[in-house]
Simulated scan of single mutants.
Amino acid sequence: MNKNNKFKALLFVLPSFIIMFMVIIIPIINSVVLSFRNEDKGTYDFSNYISIFTDQNQLENIKYTLYIVIVTVILCVLISLFLAIFLRFSKSNAANFLEKIYIVPKFIPGIVAVYTLMLVIKDTGVINRFMMLFGIDFKPSLMFTAQGIILINLWFNIPFATMIIHSDLANIPDSIIESARDVGASRIKILKNMILPLSFRAILITATFVFMGNLGEFTTPFLIGTNSPRMLGVALQQEFSVFTNMPRAAAISVMMFLLSAIIGFSYISSMMKEDKWNS
């Protein structure tokens, strides 16, 4: 490639880089700088971070958020893996039907989906009214609980996760599975020694994106979450708009970014090691 072609290539990339720089990089730099601002003294120090990690309420918010996110990731990966395997290897009518509808939740606006699920899971909702037809006063007790947030998170994330894992499983030739069965391998051995290793990359991608997508979630925990503790997305919004403590809000946002960056770095490192091993 000569210099003229390289210059043209840079021109094509430049608009995207400028947009990324203005929308992503500059706000990150501003947030980092602001997070060290001590408004009482008019100086820059670690006071905002110290206040977060010495405030019992904020520590509870961090634990509460990590609990919800980690449980969501684990359950989402397990359920999505089961669904993806079923869709990939089953030839039943149920699998064909499920393959056509499982992605539907991704096309429903988030706020609409949350309010709809609230009407279903609340103590006087659809589940309770249906059970009352049989004389059973069943109350799910999922509103304003961590379990309710996890349930709605799964509703949002399972279709996306299933799509990623299923697309990876589609690359596994049927001949490999049939050969393993011919030599007497059980379904458990095929799953453990073939399907899981071959779909590891997709599972890792799924876990990474589900973690990062739910870490800063706001809509669901704001509508059905508890007042205390709160998920970090809601805590950040309250520091920003209710208490108007911009430096502390910036510190929370930087902390959330670092958590996502750690997970992202782990994912990239794992992918690089795998690519190096494959080469």
Rank of each mutant, 00 (worst) to 15 (best):
M1K: 11
N2V: 07
N4S: 13
K6Y: 08
K8Y: 15
A9M: 08
A9Y: 07
A9I: 08
A9G: 10
L10D: 01
L14S: 12
S16V: 07
M22K: 01
I24R: 02
I25W: 03
I26N: 02
I26Y: 07
I28Y: 10
N30L: 09
L34N: 06
N38P: 10
D45C: 04
F46W: 11
S47R: 09
S47W: 13
D55Q: 03
D55W: 08
Q58N: 06
Q58G: 00
E60C: 07
E60W: 11
I62V: 03
K63M: 13
Y64N: 05
T65R: 00
L66P: 00
L66A: 05
Y67C: 08
V69H: 08
V69E: 00
V71P: 03
V71Q: 02
T72F: 02
I74E: 04
S80K: 04
S80P: 02
L81I: 00
F82M: 12
F82P: 00
F86T: 09
F86D: 10
F89T: 01
K91L: 02
L98Q: 04
I101Q: 14
I103R: 04
P109E: 14
P109R: 13
V114T: 15
Y115W: 10
V120M: 13
V120R: 06
T124H: 09
I127V: 11
L133G: 02
D137E: 15
K139L: 08
S141F: 10
L142M: 13
T145G: 00
I149Y: 11
L151H: 04
I152E: 12
W155R: 08
F156E: 04
F156W: 06
F160W: 06
A161E: 05
T162L: 11
I164W: 02
H166N: 11
H166G: 03
H166M: 05
P173I: 02
S175D: 15
E178F: 08
S186V: 09
I188F: 15
L191W: 12
K192F: 13
M194L: 14
M194I: 13
M194E: 07
I195A: 09
I195C: 13
L196Q: 02
L196N: 05
L198H: 02
L198T: 05
R201P: 09
R201H: 06
I203Q: 06
T206N: 07
T208P: 04
T208K: 02
F209P: 00
F211I: 00
G213E: 02
L215W: 11
L215P: 06
L215I: 14
L215D: 14
E217K: 04
T220H: 03
T220Q: 10
P221Q: 01
L223W: 01
I224Y: 07
T226S: 15
T226E: 10
T226H: 07
P229L: 03
P229G: 01
M231N: 05
L236H: 08
L236Q: 08
Q237P: 00
N245Y: 09
A249T: 04
I252H: 01
I252M: 13
S253P: 00
V254G: 03
M256L: 14
M256G: 08
L258A: 14
L259D: 00
A261V: 11
G264K: 06
G264H: 09
G264L: 13
S269G: 15
K273H: 09
K273A: 10
K273Y: 03
K273P: 04
D275H: 07
